[in-house]
Nucleic acid binder design. Structure first.
Lengths: 407, 407
DNA sequence: GCCAGGATTGTGACCGGTCACATAGGGGTC
DNA sequence: GACCCCTATGTGACCGGTCACAATCCTGGC
């Protein structure tokens, strides 16, 4: 029926209705799968839909129904491997659920700029996922108005895993719970809490959002649901690995902490040192990129006592590697280096980088799943397990030199 | 006036109207900056807006007015440096123009999947930017319905720069135009063409979208506007650089071509070889990531005659570097390697990578600017110059070994 | 043969804006 | 003072869906 040469505006349900000889409401029922439509009628309507190439207008749907089937991801960065992978995971899950995903970049960490971005994201409608790995993200997460559905991807759970104050009676009570089973613990990969006192879903909360061991947890920003990877444990493992190679201690080049408190990675590193009775050197502050690692590496290269360096991410490690090379110190012969994240290029560096692999994509999927659950009570919060952080042993770390490098 | 404890639904213009004692239309006039509103009235309305915390509902705006102030970016990948940077550039420009940006990932290059993604993007409303660096993207660009405003970010202009068939009378006639001025030519960095025969802007076309030299060009996918970086020229420069160091010829590890035709990078490389009278080895097919480079590098490492390798991107170069190292061939002592893109880590590799820097962020901004111009006739298409591709000389390329490595 | 009640279908209002047009007040100008 | 035009404001319809409710049809039970 596309007789006219003009590109007509797309067909609406009323167009379909007249074409099928029914009322617009019946068309609405058909496209929404309402049960009480006579099969013959449904047929006619579907035929008309097909013929006119009708597609339901997402904007009108959002306006009329309130549900917008959209997520906006707020992030400070889109180019770094970890961030980009999380975004990819979110998009993947969102696509599967027929949600559209928007992004908003937090270019500055200044309060007004962040607030403006949050506002913009809120205007878009739908849910919010905030990647809060850095000050801008943390601030954004804090600036989200209480009534907005939001999930945070955070670096550190509010209360570090420890003794469990599990209180099943009160799902709003912040509580973390970690259980171990020998060498390879089963981490609680993510879990969340329905925001306390949401208006529309007064008491449907709870079980659906619990991990399968029934534990719940609350985040740093006012009882919002969030997801995280167990960076503390990962750093702990990596440090232990380096120590087990025989190093006296392990130096640490830190990524900028998202909060004033110490990052989970730092905590894990510190814990491993303490358990081994190793001296704890001051962490060197890095940035996110290789330039920061390079600067840090230069300083560390000057100290001949340094034989092992753990870096907050693979980019930092790359910079450290380079600085060591420039200083003429061989890796892993004289100094061992380990990274964090297992970025795609790390395996191909020379020397290839020992690092801890984190499943960012899975983390993104988990974040979306959680948000999806908050947005639609109907949505199943299938436990989307995020894989355990995994130590990847490569060339950049080895035993320390036979005798102290001190001349 | 936030007396009730309830989180009320946000104020609408009618709420503001009654609060200010005017009609909703007057409120509409105020928020749209309509001139004929009495200053005192405007004051009252603005006060009411402020007091109620009114924010204009983007969804309703889109539905009522048709303009949605949104862009959707369709891309096959979000984690690779180039793609991510383009996305970042788009977001930056979009944010400045108060547009929201959505993303859609083309996970598969299969026709139905691609078509579905394009549909989804179309449903969102607003404009489209398709990153067509790969088969999935190219296919997506082709699948965009004619009536949808779209800009492609493409690898190769349809007709390679050459003799200019400039025909100012017919802006729809595909035509490219390149001019040179000595050693550092002023490339036409991007330019575009208003889609032919758009319904709503019959003859406002033309000048605004022209580059400042007045040239216009049409893309590979049916006279759609697009942007690109001059990869051909960049590859040409890089190859010339390697040849100027004394290499007999330069081998090439190619990124997958987005189309059946030869990529611009390949063309530039070939052209430089031809001009220098150097033999033209068969390009080695790589993939996008370091793994592909590694595989290609292994093969090239076997041939002792290979002394210079140009790679389609920095990730490939990384893999090649690694393969050469594994084969015991020193870089740049025995073999020189050059990359493409200047990814952030390339400067910190050992050896640091000679490469060609491309301004992906600028490219993204240009893409948005172009789309913005198509979407709103009012928008200025300020010539957003994308910087010229720039050869970055580092450690990985040097003169060939004194005598042929042949034993 | 009449009515309850479920299955089907239709009607009107509404979501929160915009657009096109109508309407009421002022100055001029002649 | 009639006429006109411009300024300032209001009214009703509309964008394309959904929701709440009413109306109609059909069937079975008594």
């Amino acid at each position: 029926m596309n007789v006219t040469g003009h590109t007509r505006r797309p067909a609406s349900i009323r167009d379909v209705a007249t074409a099928a000889g029914v009322s617009y409401q019946t068309v609405s029922r058909v496209i929404n799968g309402h049960p009480s439509v006579k099969p013959s009628t449904r047929e006619r309507v579907l035929a008309a839909i097909d013929e006119l190439g009708f597609r339901r207008n997402a904007t009108a749907l959002a306006l009329a129904s309130g549900r917008s089937r959209a997520v906006t991801v707020l992030t400070a960065n889109t180019t770094h491997y970890g961030y980009a992978s999380i975004l990819q995971g979110i998009e993947e899950a969102a696509r599967a659920a027929a949600y559209s995903v928007g992004i908003g970049v937090l270019e500055s960490a200044e309060e007004p700029a962040v607030a403006a971005e949050v506002q913009r994201a809120a205007d878009t409608g739908g849910g919010l996922i905030v990647i809060a790995y850095d000050p801008a993200g943390v601030r954004a997460l804090g600036a989200v108005p209480a009534e907005l559905p939001v999930v945070g991807v955070v670096e550190t759970p509010a209360s570090p895993p420890g003794p469990c104050h599990h209180t099943p009676a009160c799902p709003a009570a912040p509580c973390t719970h970690s259980r171990r089973a020998g060498r390879k613990p089963e981490y609680i990969q993510y879990e969340g809490l329905r925001p306390a006192h949401r208006e529309h879903a007064p008491d449907a909360a709870g079980p659906a959002l619990r991990a399968d061991d029934g534990s719940v947890a609350a985040g740093p920003s006012g009882d919002r649901p969030w997801v995280w990877t167990d960076d503390r444990e990962a750093a702990y493992e990596a440090t232990r690995h380096l120590l087990s190679l025989g190093h006296e201690t392990v130096h640490y080049v830190a990524i900028p902490s998202s909060t004033r408190r110490t990052s989970a990675r730092t905590t894990g590193w510190r814990q491993a040192l303490k358990e081994a009775g190793a001296p704890e050197p001051r962490p060197v502050q890095g940035s996110w990129g290789p330039a920061g690692g390079h600067a840090a590496g230069r300083r560390l290269a000057e100290d001949p006592a340094v034989t092992a360096i753990l870096c907050g991410n693979d980019d930092l490690a790359l910079g450290v590697l380079r600085a060591l090379h420039e200083a003429g110190r061989s890796v892993p012969g004289e100094v061992s280096v380990a990274g964090f994240d297992d970025a795609p290029h790390s395996a191909y560096l020379t020397p290839s980088l020992t690092t801890v692999r984190l499943d960012f994509t899975g983390l993104g999927r988990a974040a979306f799943a959680l948000l999806h659950g908050v947005l639609e009570e109907s949505a199943q919060i299938a436990p989307h397990p995020v894989s355990v952080p995994e130590l990847v042993v490569r060339e950049s770390a080895g035993p320390p030199p036979a005798r102290p490098t001190r001349p």
